Simulated assay, not measured.
Amino acid sequence: MSVNISQKLTLMQLSDSFFPSGSFTLSHGLETLVQTEQIQNTQDLLIFLQLLLRNKIGPTDGVALLHAYRGSVNNDLDKIRQADTYLLAQTLIEKTRETGRKSGRALLMIATQTWPDLQLTILTQEVAQGHIYGLHPVIFGVVGRVAGLNDADTILAFLHGFVTGLLGAAIRLSVIGHRQAQQILQQLVPDLEATYQIIISLNLDQMWSCTPVIDLAQMGHNKLSRRLFAN
């Protein structure tokens, strides 16, 4: 099997919702916005995803992921730790930090068993000992390198998995159906491309986010009378 085909298969594996990283338990505030009727239809959901991608996931999670990937390529564990620290500083909502850490641990466990690598072993030990937080995007960046993906494919796998995870959440919340989810995914192609450009243009100290309504929805999630998702 050629290297190119192997990389494409790995890309599909990492970006597939079948990969058990725990992301299927997350709604990133969507559940709150649906229950409070701030998101009621396909257009509302599309805007929600566009805002998350361009104003939060790209300039924070994606930037940390890319710099963790680069640190992994250079076997620079301090760079990976730095990416984790910077992302933690940008993740102000306690529940988001908690779910990011749990997802990171789940990803580490699965990846270590699937692609054995010294860096993953060291990171697993440091997370267990509390030396690093081990947020999911940072771990994903390292896993992408370990699995043999280039930086662009690692970013795209992360973004695709993020979007499809939220579309799956929207289906479970009865906002859309499967056909509408595929239509939205296609509509988001320009936004995914723009998000990718944001990610590759920023350094760690240039990370930023601005999604106040979504942030408030995430903070109010634990007050909902019924919940399907962890955030």
Rank of each mutant, 00 (worst) to 15 (best):
P59A: 00
T36A: 06
M1H: 13
S103A: 14
I57A: 05
Q90T: 02
G104M: 03
L77R: 02
S6D: 12
I5C: 04
G29E: 02
L77M: 09
N203D: 14
Q38N: 12
L46H: 10
F48C: 00
H178T: 15
K56P: 00
D191I: 15
P190Y: 08
S17F: 09
N222D: 15
R54L: 15
V34S: 03
L167N: 00
Q187M: 10
H131M: 07
E193W: 05
L26Y: 04
V143T: 00
D205N: 15
S174D: 12
Q186L: 15
Q40G: 13
T164G: 04
S6P: 01
Q82W: 02
Q82D: 06
L11S: 12
D44R: 10
Y69P: 02
L228D: 12
V175F: 02
E94M: 11
I39F: 02
N74I: 03
G165D: 09
Q113D: 07
A83F: 01
L216I: 07
T96G: 01
R81V: 09
H67K: 13
L33G: 00
T112D: 11
G141P: 00
A64N: 03
G62I: 00
P190S: 02
D61W: 06
V189L: 13
Q35I: 05
A181I: 05
A170W: 02
A128N: 04
Q43A: 10
Q125R: 13
A157V: 00
L224M: 12
D84K: 07
I155M: 01
A181P: 05
L65C: 01
Y196H: 15
I110C: 02
S27L: 10
V127C: 01
L185R: 08
Q40K: 15
G148N: 03
D61E: 12
Q197G: 06
A217V: 04
D215R: 12
Q7C: 09
H67E: 04
T32I: 03
A157M: 00
S103E: 08
L46W: 08
F229K: 09
L108T: 05
T32K: 10
L224P: 08
Q90R: 12
L66P: 00
H178R: 13
A83W: 06
S225P: 06
E31N: 07
A194K: 09
H178K: 14
V73Y: 06
L216K: 14
A194H: 14
S201W: 09
K79L: 08
M1W: 09
A169M: 08
L92Q: 15
V3Q: 12
H131W: 04
G58N: 10
D78K: 10
I47T: 11
P20Y: 07
G71V: 06
L51D: 13
V163I: 13
T121V: 11
Q119A: 13
W115Y: 15
N150Q: 09
N4H: 12
L66E: 05
G130A: 10
F162R: 10
D44K: 09
M219N: 14
V63G: 01
S209R: 15
